[in-house]
Amino acid sequence: MHCKRRMWSGLAIFLLTVAFIGFYMQMNCYSLPVQRHSTDIKEPLPESNQTFTTVPPEDPRACSCTKCVSEKDVSAWFDKRFDSNTQPLLTAKDDSLPQPALSWWLALQQSHRDVKVNEVVAEVLSVLPGTSQNRTEDSSKCRRCAVVGNSGNLLGSSYGPLIESHDVVMRMNKATTSGFESDVGRKTTHHFMYPESAIDLQADVHLVLVPFKPLDLQWIASALSTGHITKTYMEVKQFVKADKDKVSVISPAFLKYVNDNWTEHHGRYPSTGMLALIFALHTCDEVSVFGYGADVNGNWHHYWEKNKYSSAFRKTGVHDADFETETLRKLAKERKIRLYTPERTARPINKSINTLEGYQPNSR
């Protein structure tokens, strides 16, 4: 009798133990997948329709491009030179220019030291209602810019459609498109000039004045109003056709910044082509460069010129074309710009080019 009781007791204990073990294993079996999925972050997350930028959200230059030109920690060489706090344009908020920049600027073309620059700036800004930073306000977009120089290497390039595919197309000085559309395109959104290189513009084009002296500021105010200035060191346009609301002025402080950080005091001051390029780095998200350098035969000329053997610009010594070329080449090597060479194939080629845009005597 006692043996039967011990047998049934042992069996009951055994069954309870088995049941407990089974229940425990079942509970852990169900919990493991939940625990694994909650800690495993190596699996790819589902794709989202949201566009993410490669620049940290706190960066005011954030964009939706695959790569943004102002993105930091990509090129130490670029980061050393690029200062996002330097504003390219002169605005109504500028009460006065920094003294170092002012002194340097006045010395460029031996301007009179007693000129009242603040009064000149105030006069210009009173004539130009559109004095604001020329920068897209929607940082969720990818602003693609083409900077088009005037080199004869554009002839036969068939780059016209590619240039026009950009959101912004920047040209400079006496650049013309009529008759050269297949190679240079017809689209222009921004045109850089100074009094001696001025041309009339279409109503939808932004005129960007590059002032190398105070008289240049006075000229733009005159050319858009009274027309009382007709000569600088040479005869200049009395009036210029342009939309006042779309006129901007490069800040002399920006000129000095380009001279200090990018051309590093090589030459008396940077060329218009160099200034336009650095302006693009500050206002665009992707930058493509066309029409800089000699043609495929090493000749220097503007693409609309008949004299293909003109190289007088190198005799002035105002700009150090060789150093500017090295800077352009380095920007391409560091993948900050797409550099298009004279070859017909519509693709960027990051290899050396001879130098920047050709210049004539007294050109900028």
Rank of each mutant, 00 (worst) to 15 (best):
S158H: 10
G152T: 04
P44E: 13
D200I: 05
R135W: 08
M172F: 01
R5V: 10
W105D: 02
K116W: 07
D260I: 02
Y257Q: 02
P88Y: 03
P88N: 11
N118P: 00
A312K: 04
R329K: 15
S251V: 03
E235T: 14
D59L: 07
V74H: 03
R314C: 05
E71G: 10
T86L: 10
Q50R: 13
P60L: 07
S311N: 15
L15S: 13
P98V: 02
H206M: 02
D73H: 12
P88M: 09
A242E: 05
T316P: 00
M25E: 07
M1A: 08
A198N: 00
R314E: 09
P361D: 03
L128I: 15
K213C: 03
G291M: 10
G317N: 08
F82T: 08
L356Y: 02
L277G: 01
Y340T: 14
S64L: 12
E305A: 08
W77Q: 03
A175S: 14
F23M: 11
V115K: 15
Y24R: 09
R113I: 04
Y303N: 00
L102T: 02
K42S: 07
V34A: 12
Q202N: 11
H2T: 06
P348N: 13
N299F: 10
A223L: 12
N150H: 09
V318F: 03
I199S: 01
Y303A: 02
I199E: 08
